[in-house]
Design a protein around this nucleic acid. Structure first.
Lengths: 121, 121
DNA sequence: GTGTATAAGTCTCTTTTAGAGACCGCAACG
DNA sequence: CGTTGCGGTCTCTAAAAGAGACTTATACAC
């Protein structure tokens, strides 16, 4: 299993790169937010109140850059911008949900561990 | 799917908390490194050369705190410390590998998207 | 007995990253 | 004529990460 990450110098490992994204913590939330359907910038900002517009822009660019979401500009006045999952982005939802399910299932156990750790420290 | 994250105010959502951990980017590497068996501090440091000792300590503490790994001190001279996956920690490897597999499978597509993005930007 | 290495970290300093929140031009709406 | 909504950007500050020297004590080589 460890060798899942070998095969390339750790530095520019594609796997690591993906993990860094998941890691980005906001990107996963954005992907989940887009799952029901396309969404516009300010709508996303409203749905994710605790992400600053600055980070939202940045995260969206990252996701777009990697082809996980598509950005479409409509020539309305004022122009509106719609973000939507691509097929690639959608394909990530599966594994992501597996992780979320694990998190939900393990949350109590983690809470217990934390309490124990805090008590003894 | 989005409602997987609702049910609690975004702030102290257990799921989000787990994602933040995966997010921590070093923690996943550590978990994978421990998969074959227990490992000691400096051995980990050697296996993960691009993580500073400072961050290694911190990440290990985080994982220990959440009950994903166990820290055992041996009263040798000098005392040595061994880190091992707990059952809980081991149970995370499944979903984590799903994600890694996705990453490996999608890497070429992501690379293509990146190239396209760079070209047009 | 002196020098080096190991053990598991810690401490400090600098750089990077994230967050808060004001600001932009522009058009519709009241 | 002032406000709101659009999709962001800009600046300034606060928090986090990285680099790398330092610690205490033991063991081994020379």
């Amino acid at each position: 299993m460890r060798d899942m990450l070998d095969q390339m110098d750790l530095a520019n490992c594609p796997v690591r790169h993906v993990l860094d994204h998941i890691a980005a913590k906001w990107t996963t939330l954005i992907l989940l937010e887009l799952e029901p359907g396309p969404c516009r910038f300010n709508a996303l900002a409203r749905s994710l109140p605790d992400i600053s517009r600055r980070m939202l822009t940045q995260s969206l660019r990252d996701l777009e850059r990697d082809g996980l979401i598509a950005r479409k500009v409509f020539a309305t006045k004022p122009p509106s911008v719609e973000y939507a999952l691509t097929d690639l982005g959608r394909s990530l939802l599966g594994p992501l949900c597996a992780l979320i399910d694990w998190a939900k299932a393990s949350a109590p156990e983690i809470a217990t561990a934390r309490a124990a750790f805090a008590a003894q420290a």
